[in-house]
Structure formats: structure tokens, C-alpha cells
């Protein structure tokens, strides 16, 4: 089986998640006796191609065109569709980034095929390849197979494989530059510069103790009890996205893929289900305590200490006990 990994570069940098996809590709190639190639797409990308070529790969392609910068789904699909038709990989793997989500369904459709998106692993069942993905926001998992002819597309969730496990090659892999033309009229979107909203007032990246609230807090006025707990602990208050979407806490207290990424000593999650987009922002915490009334909530997968129960019963006595402990210290 011929496997192609398409790595991601953006704003002058190779996205680190690309190493994870290469590691996944190496594992799959070893398990299936396949060959693994990689491609990088953009304008002036041969530097990235050389960087990737240090890994154990049969070949690296630099798919080049001035029309590929800045990123647009139209140009990327045009370039990759043509390349895949010529190169004929059986399986195309990519990281499940915002950029890939933006173009891969279009690419798979244009190629007459399908993408199993946001996978967390794979299995071999006899000759059949199964890709594991989360369902119902992580409450369940599914093994999914391809039923049609290739090329098959798979995207992998951030953190599904270890990037530092991507094996280096004995010698640099050969790099081939593939120049493509993006004819006028193909690209319909006109993207502007990427920007960050006005500087954030709250920086949680250095916080040692974070008390985070999720939708389990139910009402805006209840945030007060989480705040009281954070104050008792001498920590900062943070939230899952729906709390910020509702305007109950400002956006700069949001933790997750579209918010801040934190690594405190203690992350205390109150009424947060543990969707992957939240987890990516806090899984680096040294200790995670989760309070959730649903014993099956995915947050318990990554918690060190699990309290299955109603946060409104548990938080008030916890505040009292913390205060007592602090008073005893002083």
C-alpha cells in the first residue's frame, strides 16, 4: 500500500502536529508493509521538504505554486487533486487542523472518495484497516472502515500520535519539486492577513492553579461559587467555550483549541464534559481534578482525581475545607 502524508506549513513554520502524522504514517506503513511518502504544499516550500526528508520516508514532494500562498481551499484542492491523480496513493493522511478541515472534505469529494476525519488511532482487523474516532463528543468511540475504492483520506486528531516518535531516516529522503499551475478563476476566496484580536487582558499560561467552569454551572450567577473556590485556593478562574460564548466570562478566560493553552499545577474542572477542543488546552496540567455528575463524562478519562457528583453540593464544603487548611497553615 502506498501511503502519503501531507504535512502542514503555515506562516513560515512547519506545524509541529505534522510530526505526529508522519509518526502515524510510519506505524501504518510498518504494519501494512506499505511505503510512506510525504508532501508539503505551498509557495517556496522546498525548505520544509528538506526538513521532513530527514525522517524515514521513501520520498518527499514539494508541491509548489505562487498561487498556493496565501492558503485557499480552492488552490489546495486543485493542486492536491492533480498530484494525487498522478501519484496514486492508496491512503492520504493529514493532521486534523482547522486548515485541513477547511479543504479535505472538498478534496476527498473531488477525488470521488471520502475522509474518515479526526481519528485517534487505527487497528488492523485481518486485512481490513479500521480507524478509531470519537463519537458523541468523546462519550463513545467507533471503529470505522472504508467501503469504497481509494484514494482513502484520514485525518488524525492533535495528540493521537507522538511526534517525537517519528523515526529519522538512515539518509535524507529524495525530494522532488512538483510545480503546479493554478489557472485564473480557480481561486474564488480572497483571504486577508491572519490577525489576533486585541491583546488579551488575562494571561493564564503562567497560572499555577486554575478553577475552570463549564456548562454544568447552569446559570451566570452560579459562577460566583467557582470564583469563591478559585479565590480560596489562590488560583485563577477559567472556562469552557460555551461559558464565554454566553458572555458569562470574557473570551480571554477560555481554555481550549480556540482559547488559551495552559499547564498549571492544578486544574480543577467543574461541570466540564471534556470535549477534545477543551482537553487540548489543559491536558498539560500536572494534576487534574474533575467534578461532574455524569460518571461517563470524557473528562474523567484524563482526570487524576474524579468526583462523580453535583458540583453545587461539593463546591461549598470544599471552599470551607480549603479555607480551614489555609488558616491552619498561617
Amino acid at each position: 500500500m502506498k501511503i502519503l502524508v501531507v504535512v502542514e506549513q503555515r506562516e513560515g513554520k512547519l506545524n509541529r502536529v505534522s510530526w505526529e502524522t508522519i509518526a502515524a504514517g510510519q506505524a501504518l506503513a510498518a504494519d501494512t508493509g506499505g511505503t510512506l511518502e510525504a508532501a508539503v504544499v505551498g509557495a517556496g516550500v522546498s525548505g520544509y521538504a528538506a526538513e521532513i526528508a530527514a525522517k524515514k520516508l521513501a520520498k518527499v514532494y514539494a508541491i509548489e505554486s505562487a498561487g498556493l500562498e496565501p492558503y485557499t481551499p480552492d488552490a489546495f484542492v486543485h493542486a492536491l487533486k492533480g498530484f494525487i491523480a498522478t501519484n496514486q496513493p492508496a491512503l492520504v493522511m493529514m493532521p486534523h487542523t482547522y486548515q485541513v478541515r477547511d479543504f479535505v472534505p472538498k478534496l476527498a469529494t473531488a477525488a470521488g472518495s471520502t475522509c474518515i476525519s479526526d481519528c485517534i488511532g487505527y487497528k488492523k482487523d485481518g486485512d481490513k484497516l479500521l480507524f478509531t474516532r470519537q463519537m458523541f463528543q468523546g462519550k463513545l468511540a467507533a471503529d470505522v472502515s472504508f467501503t469504497g475504492a481509494g484514494p482513502w483520506f484520514v485525518t488524525f486528531q492533535n495528540g493521537a500520535f507522538r511526534g517525537d516518535k517519528a523515526e529519522a531516516g538512515a539518509a535524507a529522503a529524495p525530494v522532488e519539486v512538483v510545480n503546479v499551475e493554478i489557472p485564473a478563476g480557480v481561486v474564488r476566496n480572497q483571504p486577508h492577513e491572519v490577525f489576533k484580536e486585541a491583546k488579551q487582558a488575562v494571561d493564564l499560561t503562567q497560572a499555577e492553579i486554575i478553577v475552570a467552569v463549564g456548562r454544568g454551572i447552569k446559570e451566570e450567577k452560579n459562577i460566583a461559587i467557582a470564583k469563591a473556590l478559585a479565590e480560596a485556593l489562590g488560583g485563577d478562574l477559567a472556562a469552557s467555550r460555551p461559558i464565554c460564548d454566553n458572555g458569562w466570562l470574557p473570551m480571554d478566560r477560555q481554555i481550549g483549541s480556540s482559547g488559551q493553552t495552559v499547564a498549571p499545577k492544578l486544574y480543577l474542572a467543574l461541570g466540564i464534559s471534556g470535549a477534545i477542543q477543551h482537553i487540548v488546552g489543559m491536558k498539560g496540567a500536572r494534576t487534574i481534578i474533575a467534578v461532574n455528575k455524569d460518571a461517563e463524562a470524557p473528562i474523567f478519562e484524563i482526570a487524576d482525581y474524579a468526583v462523580v457528583g453535583n458540583l453545587f453540593d461539593i463546591v461549598p464544603p470544599l471552599i470551607e475545607e480549603v479555607k480551614k487548611a489555609k488558616a491552619a497553615n498561617s
Binding site: A141, D143, S145, F146, F300, E301, A306
Partner: peptide
């Protein structure tokens, strides 16, 4: 073009202490 072969409750990988 794709098929769910099996749906299941994911296996826990981390050791979690239940506080009850």
C-alpha cells in the same frame, strides 16, 4: 463510502482515583 463497524465505550487509559 465509510462504515461504522463497531461503536463502544472508550477504554480508560489513565489511572484515575475516584474520590467518593
Amino acid at each position: 463510502l465509510q462504515k461504522i463497524e463497531r461503536l463502544y465505550v472508550p477504554q480508560k487509559t489513565k489511572k484515575t482515583e475516584i474520590i467518593d
